[in-house]
Amino acid sequence: MYDPTRLAALVAVSEAGSITRAAERLGYTVPALSQQLAKLEREAGTALLVRHHRGARLTGAGELLAARARRVLDEMERARHELAQLAGLSGGRLRVGTFTTAGIHLLPPVLTAFRRAHPDVELTVAGYEPPFGVAAVAAGEVDLALTHAYEPADAVPLPAAVSAERILVEELVLVTQPGHALASGTARLPLEALAGQPLISMAPTHPPRQAVERALARAGATPSVLVETPGYALVCALVSAGLGIAVVPEMVARTAATPVGTRLLEPGDLRRTISVVHRTDESTAAADSFRALLRGAYGRSVG
């Protein structure tokens, strides 16, 4: 394997036209540079330079090796720059998409850690309720986005060149008005116990929730109020006011702005998975660093 220092010496001679000028450019003495070139010729097994009264020129073998050396040195410089970006991220920008719940409860501490580690990176945050964040990543509007999917759910394939990395899985739980009989037990509540209960529903216009709503309908829950936009704060407020019950992600129930009762459901197979989506063909050091911080903070299941 050729020593990169000696390859750089050969390229410098090729560009400078003499060993003396190449030595000045590289900060070597002429004897030291000549020694490096001699070692490179021994490694190559052939003459690489022809010296003459006006300097030096490369032989055919020297020209061939210098052309390859330029590519190697360029790749090494690119790697050095990318590693420096990854370690320090001294500039650039990061565009993050998020849906409301994640933007309020998950994103701020991760953004704080990212800003502390990389203060010179320009940060922008935009709101995209699922599944629109995925489309924004595919279109290049943002570098990555937090999104979610429910279980059960109808399968939705990701666009080409977009990948999803699971960050957190949480159960969906029952929320009721404080003091409601359904929230009084400690054991899991069978889903069938919701039969006949007035349901604050997010169907039918919220695609990620549609399969969950169908499961609740099969259990006998009766839609009471339809919330046609993905606003869990509004759902919990309506529940708190006694207009019905609802089934929401555990994170939503724990952080509701209005008082609600909660209870786990049986079986515990109604879930929400929060993921970060990103392009696989245009990854940046900033996006990679941010995803690593997300994994460190939330790479676990809730509930």
Rank of each mutant, 00 (worst) to 15 (best):
Q36G: 00
H118Y: 14
L48N: 03
A87I: 11
Y28D: 14
A67Q: 15
A113S: 14
P119L: 09
T101F: 05
A139Q: 08
G17S: 08
A135D: 02
Q35I: 00
A56K: 02
A44V: 14
A135L: 02
T46L: 14
Y128N: 03
T59V: 09
R95N: 05
G92M: 03
L48G: 04
S18G: 02
D74C: 00
L26I: 07
L26M: 09
A102H: 05
A135N: 01
R115N: 04
G97A: 08
G91L: 07
R80Y: 07
E77Y: 01
R71W: 00
T98F: 07
A87V: 12
R51K: 08
R80H: 04
V72C: 03
E15A: 12
A61C: 10
S18Q: 01
S34A: 06
R116I: 11
G88D: 11
A61S: 14
L73M: 11
H53Y: 06
A67K: 15
F132M: 05
G45V: 12
G97M: 06
E41K: 14
Y128A: 02
F132H: 08
H52N: 09
A87N: 09
R70Y: 15
G91I: 04
A87C: 07
E82P: 00
A16D: 09
R51S: 04
G62N: 10
V110L: 04
E43K: 12
G60Q: 08
A69M: 13
P131S: 01
V137I: 02
G55F: 04
A12P: 05
E122P: 01
E43C: 10
A47K: 11
D74I: 10
L64V: 14
H118C: 03
R116Q: 15
A84D: 14
Y128M: 03
A139T: 00
R70N: 12
S34K: 04
F99W: 13
A67D: 15
T20L: 04
V134P: 01
F114N: 06
L83R: 15
L106P: 00
L107S: 03
A102V: 08
F99P: 00
L89D: 05
